[in-house]
């Protein structure tokens, strides 16, 4: 009788199961898809010149307007249901942000302050300042209020929650902006795609920056001026992005024509959202790394 020694098998390593939805992954997926879809629509309609039936074109335009919302539902909201610790109140945040935008933000900017009417002919620095102090601050402040007083502080369990709720508020706000744009402008699909991308970029960028301030204020030991500072930066991002995007796309007057270059708008918006995601991700990583180091050093002591 013989027997062999059973092979030594290492016991399976216990994995730390992450109980929350990974917001960065969802955000990056949504962003990439929006950029790609808007880019494809722009190229197809701008350069290939496809001609769709009016009804189909209208449907496509509406689809583009709802694109951020649809992608958010697919990649964020539904994903939330598949994790052990789903975030609650995201729908409420989105809805309240959208309602606030429709009821307060957009009317206040477009009807009362009307920065486009009196800033369009001003010099670039004045335009940046003007949009920062009007459209930018209104938009970011409304989203902040929604997140601060509706979602948080009870919903904020981890830093990433701040991102999730701020992005939800951003999606609500940008969807309203998109809808108001497509309803009030008989724009072609390529231009709607650019506008959707623009709204997405400024809202995502602003909300990410604002989320960092909220997260740090809630989870870090920071100066109480950090959160207002991030609001200022978020408003400034809007103030920069709105005039610069149109400025890049604006035509230069020649002897026979002045043809605009909307492709620059596409590149600019993509750049803005990419840089914003990269920077804020970097900041989040830095502070989490700092906290890990300080915690580990604290435990050794």
């Amino acid at each position: 009788m013989s027997f062999s020694t059973p092979p030594l098998i290492a016991p399976p390593k216990e994995e730390a199961i992450y109980p929350y939805r990974r917001v960065w992954r969802s955000l990056i997926q949504e962003t990439i898809l929006i950029v790609v879809i808007c880019g494809v629509v722009f190229v197809v309609f701008q350069y290939i010149g496809i001609d769709l039936p009016a009804l189909v074109e209208r449907g496509l335009i509406l689809l583009l307007a709802f694109l951020p919302l649809i992608l958010w539902f697919l990649f964020s909201r539904f994903a939330e249901t598949r994790v052990p610790e789903p975030r609650s109140g995201l729908n409420t945040t989105l809805m309240l942000s959208a309602l606030s935008a429709a009821a307060i933000g957009v009317p206040l900017v477009n009807t009362v302050v009307q920065p486009a009417e009196w800033l369009s002919l001003e010099a670039a620095p004045v335009r940046i300042l003007g949009y920062t102090l009007t459209a930018g601050i209104v938009q970011e402040f409304i989203k902040f209020l929604v997140v601060r007083y509706v979602s948080g502080p009870r919903a904020l369990r981890i830093r990433d929650d701040s991102i999730a709720y701020c992005i939800a508020a951003a999606v609500g706000y940008m969807t309203v902006l998109n809808l108001i744009y497509v309803v009030n402008h008989a724009a072609t699909p390529d231009m709607v795609a650019l506008r959707v991308l623009h709204h997405m970029s400024i809202n995502v960028a602003g909300s990410l920056i604002m989320s960092y301030g909220i997260a740090q204020t809630w989870f870090g030991r920071v100066n109480p001026l950090l959160m207002p500072l991030t609001l200022l930066v978020a408003a400034l991002i809007n103030g920069l992005a709105i005039p610069l995007r149109s400025g890049f796309a604006n035509a230069s007057l020649g002897l026979t024509s002045a043809i605009a270059s909307p492709i620059f708008s596409l590149a600019f918006s993509t750049g803005i959202v990419t840089v914003a995601i990269g920077l804020v991700l970097f900041f989040y990583n830095v502070v989490e790394e700092q906290e890990r180091i300080s915690r580990e050093s604290g435990s050794r002591l």
Partner: peptide, 29 residues
């Protein structure tokens, strides 16, 4: 806006003669 909006006879002929047709696209914020 542009300075030096200057058209010569040769340039006008290149553009197909009178009238000189301009298409101007305006952008808003």
């Amino acid at each position: 806006g542009v300075d030096g909006f200057e058209i010569s006879r040769a340039r006008l002929a290149e553009e197909g003669g009178n009238p000189l047709e301009l298409r101007i696209e305006l952008t808003h914020d």
